[in-house]
């Protein structure tokens, strides 16, 4: 091929190229080490006579420089074009829809609760959902055949194994996260402060405010001198961080067999939140059961109740989410309906 032909052919190729890849192919075609058209000519210079060399040499080298320069220029041009909006482009067109995933509102709620307690130096642990009577009731000072057990309507698991001994311990679905208190204390020594998020189960008819499975966060703080007044501080701090410093909180006596004294915590609803809870007459909503850990609970895990003391509490995650996000039906949480989930 003659230099003149190369020059023409290059110009044609160059004007047709409209991306970086095409430019690279052009470079290989003319300047490629092995088979480049111009490379071949330049390589053959050494076989030419001195006179010919003098004539062709500078022209070939000039063409190479020119090709390199043109390629660079065109590349710059191409990049520039791709980085610039077309003339007259309508910038008010809507943005492209990007598919994003949503965390379930209960996960978000649990994360928020865990974050607050983590800042208060509480560690997070978990426990099994299928439990024994021992951990769910007996070790928590809830005796067998006592009406106190009716406070927790229980799902019982059918055992697939048949044993000859009469006293096979019944397995059940935990009715609260409190069994994890026992499991944790059996393997740890105070002082500590933990929270336990998890799913719990109640055998009851479902409606807008009752579910057969829902979620709780249990709390437990034990040490040589943890007081009821400390409980009040921690819980007030928690609710203020969750709902804002203006939130109304009240404490009142209650009964749970695994705490003494026992109490409940209510928070004040705004007027539209009150309307949401159709069946409610009061603007106060119970959100937490709590108290000082009962000495029998400490005994059941081998602690000396004279040397340690502490508080425990349990709160319902769905209930907090319902208040915070004004959700009027607890069954929505387990509906799997993305029209609900994707709102959060």
């Amino acid at each position: 091929m003659k230099l003149e032909d190369i020059k023409k052919s290059f110009a044609k190729d160059l004007s047709a190229a409209n991306d970086a890849k095409a430019l690279e192919e052009i470079r290989v075609k003319y300047l490629g080490r092995k088979d480049g058209g111009l490379t071949k000519i330049l390589r053959s210079l050494k076989d030419l006579s001195a006179a010919q060399k003098k004539k062709v040499g500078p022209a070939a080298n000039a063409l190479r420089d020119n090709i390199e320069k043109e390629l660079k220029r065109k590349l710059g041009q191409l990049l520039n074009i791709n980085n610039q909006l077309q003339e007259g482009f309508d910038v008010t067109l809507p943005g492209k829809k990007i598919g994003v995933g949503h965390l379930h509102i209960l996960t978000q709620m649990e994360n928020e609760i865990r974050d607050i307690f983590s800042r208060l130096n509480f560690s997070a642990v978990e426990g099994p959902e299928v439990e024994t009577e021992h951990y769910n009731f007996d070790a928590l000072n809830i005796p067998p055949d006592h009406p106190a057990r009716d406070m927790w309507d229980t799902f019982w698991v059918q055992s697939t194994r048949r044993t000859k001994t009469e006293d096979v311990e019944g397995k059940l679905l935990r009715t609260h996260t409190s069994p994890v208190q026992i499991r944790f204390m059996e393997s740890h020594q105070p002082p500590f402060q933990i929270i336990v998020p998890g799913r719990v189960f109640r055998y009851e008819a479902t409606d807008a405010s009752h579910e057969i499975n829902f979620h709780q966060v249990e709390g437990l703080m034990v040490g040589p001198n943890v007081t009821l007044a400390n409980f009040k501080y921690i819980i007030e701090t928690f609710f203020k961080q969750l709902f804002g410093p203006e939130i109304g909180i009240r404490f009142r006596p209650s009964y749970f067999p695994f705490v003494e004294p026992g109490l409940e915590v209510d928070i004040k609803l705004s007027s539209d939140q009150t309307k949401l809870m159709a069946s409610r007459k009061s603007e106060w909503l119970e959100v937490m059961g709590a108290g000082m850990v009962h000495p029998n609970v400490f005994k059941s895990v081998g602690y000396d109740p004279k040397k340690v003391q502490g508080f425990a509490f349990g709160l319902g995650v769905e209930r907090l989410a319902m208040i915070k996000y004004k959700i009027d039906d607890i069954r929505l949480f387990h509906s799997g309906d993305l029209r609900f989930i994707n709102q959060f």
Partner: peptide
């Protein structure tokens, strides 16, 4: 309980975890 004070607990500073 309304008259019970809120008192910040005094505990050894051990880091929390999960």
């Amino acid at each position: 309980y309304d008259k019970l004070p809120s008192i910040i607990p005094h505990v050894a500073l051990a880091s929390s975890g999960q």
